[in-house]
């Protein structure tokens, strides 16, 4: 039984691609056979985040147009035995593919893979429609900001209207120090407003920048964000994993300093 998961958000820059890369890699680390599909035609980036940009020969549009077989376009990630990437085309646009073609492609991939992860472009136009066409479930990524949550709400409505069976929320880039001060919405606030199931929260972690620089997903590492992503992967597999304490280590002295800090 394979499962097709679309990673979407509405707003750009909240961490869809990073989440796709880490969730895909994490599931592969948990011994699932995974293919990541970059559906952001014209603005491909998942290949870079995965560190596979130098190995692209064929892309999604080539497959759909019949210029090559699916197997030829899939890039095998040599670091993990079960992980593949289907890159997007950089010199084409979103109209190069239709939702029907995406569905057909995904149905073929279902026979090979346990998990198919679709990295959705920002926006609610053609690219979004293509990305959700063949999906069974969705991960909606948001940050604790008014604009990102507003867009997430719109996306959740569109996913419901398109009969996506299950939608879970990932709150990205949360800063517990700011939440404590009351200067950032808390996880509870965000979940309360969007009223969908929270599948995980990822802290704002500089290690994410470093891992993207290196083209090596962070999932499974000791960094807080790496742990958070691994927990999300386990929850996707149906495991019950308690929420991570995202506050990080704060010493007695830093707390004392915080108490006397002026504004």
């Amino acid at each position: 039984m394979s499962e097709v998961i679309v990673v979407t958000s509405g707003k750009g820059g909240v961490g869809k691609t990073t989440t796709s890369a880490n969730v895909g890699t994490g599931l592969a680390k948990l011994n699932k056979k995974v293919v990541l599909i970059d559906t952001d035609i014209g603005l491909r980036n998942l290949d870079v985040v995965m560190g596979l940009e130098n190995r692209i020969v064929y892309n999604l549009v080539d497959v759909v147009e019949g210029n090559c077989r699916i197997k030829q376009a899939l890039i095998k990630d040599k670091r993990y035995p079960n992980l593949y990437l289907l890159p997007s085309a950089q010199t084409r646009d979103k109209t190069s593919v239709t939702p029907e073609q995406m569905k057909k492609l995904i149905d073929e991939l279902r026979e090979e893979f346990d998990y198919i992860i679709l990295d959705c472009p920002a926006g609610i136009e053609q690219g979004f429609k293509n990305a959700i066409a063949g999906a069974d479930r969705a991960l909606v990524v948001t940050t604790p900001e008014v604009s990102a949550i507003r867009d997430a709400d719109r996306i959740i409505g569109l996913l419901e209207a398109n009969e996506i069976k299950r939608t879970d929320l990932i709150v990205n880039r949360i800063r517990m120090d700011m939440v404590k001060k009351g200067d950032m919405m808390s996880l509870d606030d965000v979940v309360d407003i969007l009223s969908i199931n929270l599948i995980g929260a990822v802290p704002d972690d500089e290690n994410i920048v470093i891992s993207t620089n290196n083209g090596e997903p962070l999932v499974g590492s000791d960094a807080l964000a790496g742990k958070a992503y691994m927990n999300i992967c386990k929850r996707i597999l149906g495991e019950e994993v308690p929420l991570l304490d995202l506050s990080g280590k704060s010493s007695f002295w830093s707390k004392l300093a915080g108490l006397f800090k002026k504004n």
Binding site: R150, K181, G182, D183, D189, I193, L259
Partner: peptide
């Protein structure tokens, strides 16, 4: 939270939440 925060106006997190609720 600093000692002086007690006398401050509404936190920006709460402002954000209230604005969002209306917006949605």
């Amino acid at each position: 939270m600093g000692l002086f925060d007690l006398f401050k106006k509404k936190n920006s997190g709460d402002v954000a939440k209230d604005r969002l609720k209306l917006l949605l």
